[in-house]
């Protein structure tokens, strides 16, 4: 049990970082990590021995996030019926857009799956095969989605560089 806990503790910063980039909110992120850890501890026996623990934990975290997201969207729609308010899409603040590094700002604006994909591939260095297992799709699909995510990041990064200068000129 101590060995398991030590492994989890070691991967904790990576889980928290991934959760922050999924939720884009540090405190929600920790809640997500907490519920994912509970799930992981409960399902520990089902974990495949040879599999990468990090990929397994990411997979749990990602599914937990999607479930929670789906629930809150459903709740949001319900709320909308009463308040007539529009869906609260994430929009980076003007300040953040100007200040943040262009790549990071562009990354923020990608959709959930693209953020997860780029983080897994470029930052965590997971293999395509591991990602295919997390997303439960063929490797070919992972690669085409990755390609789209990269193009999107590229385009957004270019856009971010020009936006502030346009402001200054105005």
């Amino acid at each position: 049990m101590n060995e398991i806990d030590d492994q989890l503790r070691e991967l904790m910063p990576r889980m928290r970082r991934f959760a922050v980039w999924l939720t884009r909110n540090p405190s929600t992120a920790d809640d997500l990590v907490q519920s994912s850890l509970e799930k992981a501890l409960m399902a520990w026996g089902d974990k495949r021995e040879e599999g990468d623990l990090r990929a397994w934990l990411f997979s749990i975290l990602y599914r937990q996030f999607l479930d929670a997201h789906r629930r809150s969207r459903r709740y949001g729609r319900l709320l909308e019926l009463f308040t007539g308010g529009k869906d609260d899409h994430y929009e980076p603040s003007v300040e953040r857009t100007v200040v943040a590094q262009s790549t990071l700002a562009a990354f923020e604006r990608l959709n959930t799956e693209q953020r997860a994909l780029l983080l897994w591939v470029s930052v965590e260095g997971l293999s395509y095969k591991e990602i295919a297992e997390i997303l439960d799709v063929p490797i070919g699909t992972v690669m085409s989605r990755l390609s789209r995510a990269r193009q999107a990041l590229r385009q957004l990064s270019d856009g971010e560089i020009t936006t502030p200068s346009l402001r200054i000129l105005k």
Binding site: D5, P13, R17, V20, L37, Q101, L104
Partner: peptide, 24 residues
């Protein structure tokens, strides 16, 4: 892009530990 992303996200690894996330 991959490099800048790695650099930009590396800060996320050094958050203050949250005792409520400890496995115990």
């Amino acid at each position: 892009d991959a490099q800048s992303l790695r650099a930009a996200l590396s800060g996320g690894l050094h958050r203050v530990p949250n005792p409520e996330l400890d496995p115990t």
